[in-house]
Nucleic acid binder design. Sequence first.
DNA 1: ATGGTAGAGCATCTA
Length: 262
Amino acid sequence: MTFTLATWNINSVRLREGLVERLMREEAPDVLCLQECKSPVEKIPLERFRALGYDWMVARGQKGYNGVAILSKLPLVEAGAGDYAGLGHARHVAGRLENGVTIHNFYVPAGGDIPDRDENEKFGQKLDFLTHMRDDFLANRPEKAILVGDLNIAPREDDVWSHKALLKIVSHTPIEVEHLAQTRDAGNWVDVTRQDIPEGQLYSWWSYRARDWDAADKGRRLDHVWATPDISNAAHGSRILRAARSWEQPSDHVPVFATFDL
DNA sequence: ATGGTAGAGCATCTA
């Protein structure tokens, strides 16, 4: 079977219900992983998604903040959810397809503005969240698994508009990049997007604060698709839907896609 | 170095 998966930080699933529908109609990924739903699970507007063939959902939510959901046209059952770093936030949910593939959907904490855990508690929480992920993958090596989400780190020099300018900016500091590398290596995860598109600048997020985000193009690749080595060679066709950043009342993130032949 | 925008929900907090 072949299926296409997308990951998208939607920044309020209720405000942007119409944009989710547009993606479902125009791109029709089989599996759509959302982050920052900012909604309790019971208030996610499921009926309109069901009408478009997305009959399955696993999700975690809370009022106003965070929230992750996996919407699927393929049968999907819940495969757990973790409370990483003990924050009590809705930042992870996992589902399993009938072919046995597990899909992890993560929303890693943004980490605040100051890249120092002594001055900024949120930065420490971000690092601890990643360390907890790493330890989980070391204790229980994932197989036949896909990990997606807003990881809030742009690891490579060509994942940001200026490596030099962002070295001290949260999302691209060396300590965050090192934590993310350890997390990835602990699960033997393969960066599917970069497997497919190894060269060149690649961004999935542009700040709302720019006068002209498109012209300035000061983006970062914060949203990722990873897979375990037993299925990573089945992945292809990665792409980033930059055009969605120009949709009406957009999210500051755009969808990232990958297709798997399994 | 600074300030810039957006969402939730109604005062700020978070990104």
